[in-house]
């Protein structure tokens, strides 16, 4: 696996390594769905960069995870229930679900909504007839 540890980052190399371990535990790669894990080098580089703006919360989560005995994999139940760890979950999801490979696997176009926008069907307006038939429901004063 490519080394994505950054030296000029507010997270220490140990914290970065732990963050990557957690990312892979939260969203692992899947052959069945043909998707990378959140510890994939490209996705993790995005996670690391995005962590800078949220470093206080992320550091607190990592400190909590580091304080558990042994490998985090042994504590998944505890970690996924923890409010302190929630900002790391949010960070991982934010980056994972904007990665090209992930969006393509979901049948989505890897692009921002603007400027192309999307089609949304009108729907069947004749369904309103039932409502119209009931007549006025507002209250006279």
């Amino acid at each position: 696996m490519q080394n994505t540890i950054a030296s000029d980052h507010p997270l220490t190399p140990e914290e970065q390594a732990l963050l990557r371990t957690l990312a892979g535990l939260i969203v692992p790669a899947s052959e069945e769905f043909d998707v990378p894990g959140a510890d994939d080098p490209t996705i993790f580089a995005d996670i690391l960069q995005s962590a800078v703006a949220q470093q206080a919360e992320v550091k607190a989560a990592l400190e909590y995870a580091a304080g558990l005995d042994g490998h985090p994999a042994a504590h998944v139940e505890t970690l996924q229930m923890s409010e302190v760890v929630a900002p790391v979950v949010a960070l991982v999801m934010q980056c994972y679900y904007r990665a090209d490979a992930v969006l393509v696997s979901l049948g989505m176009e890897p692009r921002p909504p603007y400027p192309e926008g999307y089609e949304v069907e009108q729907g069947d307006w004749s369904m309103l007839e039932a409502v119209q038939q009931r007549g006025k429901i507002w209250r006279d004063v």
């Binding site: 535990l25 939260i26 969203v27 692992p28 899947s30």
Partner: peptide, 16 residues
């Protein structure tokens, strides 16, 4: 996030 925080999307292999 809705799934993760409502307990509907687990960590690990069941995620996808």
């Amino acid at each position: 996030l809705t799934g993760a925080f409502s307990g509907r999307i687990p960590w690990g292999d069941g995620h996808h």
